[in-house]
């Protein structure tokens, strides 16, 4: 049976819009984005991997990283914390609304294998540290046309999505890369440097 909607109605209709006859009870969630959320339009680009095998202070490393993100006005979310010794997996997603259209995102995946707590003496003081194989994966990206505070995404209809794609590919591409993507990349470099300096890796420092 042919549908009742005309061609223009289909163009401007938003997907998954509830019909006016049946009203569903709204489901209020915490607003924390799921780690399996769809990829943002700007894309999350892989940045770099830090691998360290040895003894390190995980507690302090955690605090240093979170404080760095929060001091730069990032909203810190921890979608996954899985601790099953000898394995510890953490997934972090830090978001910052730069403009009403653009959002900065830094994704951190921390993986520790062979987790073992050891007591060491540092500067004459006993400290509880962690021994294991740490793998830190950093990713960064920009999201445009992000959802509002009620979780409702904009730029949903077919013509709006085409317009947004045209905007990104031809109109604001260079400005977007220069102002937002590059700036976020250099900021992620600073974050990368902070992590390497804290772990006291030999190849530390960054001229960028």
């Amino acid at each position: 049976m042919p549908s009742d909607e005309t061609f223009f109605q289909k163009l401007f209709s938003k997907p998954n819009e509830p019909s006016s006859e049946v009203r569903e009870i709204p489901d209020y969630t915490s607003g924390v984005p799921d780690v399996h959320d769809e990829m943002p339009v700007g894309g999350i680009a892989p940045f770099g991997i830090i691998k360290y095998r040895g003894v390190f202070d995980l507690n302090k490393l955690y605090k240093v990283m979170v404080r760095w993100l929060k001091s730069r006005r990032f909203e810190f979310h921890e979608p996954l914390y899985r601790f099953k010794p000898p394995e510890l997996i953490l997934n972090w997603r830090a978001e910052r609304k730069k403009t009403p259209f653009v959002k900065d995102i830094i994704v951190v995946n921390l993986d520790i294998r062979g987790y073992e707590e050891v007591e060491t003496i540092v500067g004459g003081v006993k400290k509880r540290m962690v021994k294991g194989r740490l793998t830190l994966n950093l990713n960064f990206g920009n999201e445009t046309g992000y959802a509002d505070i009620f979780g409702q995404k904009r730029w949903n209809s077919v013509i709006e999505r085409h317009l947004k794609s045209f905007l990104h590919r031809f109109v604001i591409k260079r400005d977007f890369e220069l102002l937002h993507l590059d700036a976020l990349m250099y900021e992620t470099w600073k974050f990368h440097k902070v992590i390497k300096d804290y772990l006291r890796m030999e190849c530390h420092g960054n001229l960028y």
């Binding site: 770099g48 991997i49 830090i50 691998k51 360290y52 095998r53 040895g54 003894v55 470099w189 990368h192 390497k196 772990l199 890796m201 030999e202 190849c203 960054n206 001229l207 960028y208």
Partner: peptide, 17 residues
């Protein structure tokens, strides 16, 4: 710059980087 991997292993024989 693009640093794909920075790996450091502390072993009894010395560091592997």
């Amino acid at each position: 710059k693009r640093e794909l991997r920075n790996q450091e292993h502390v072993t009894p024989e010395g560091k592997y980087i």
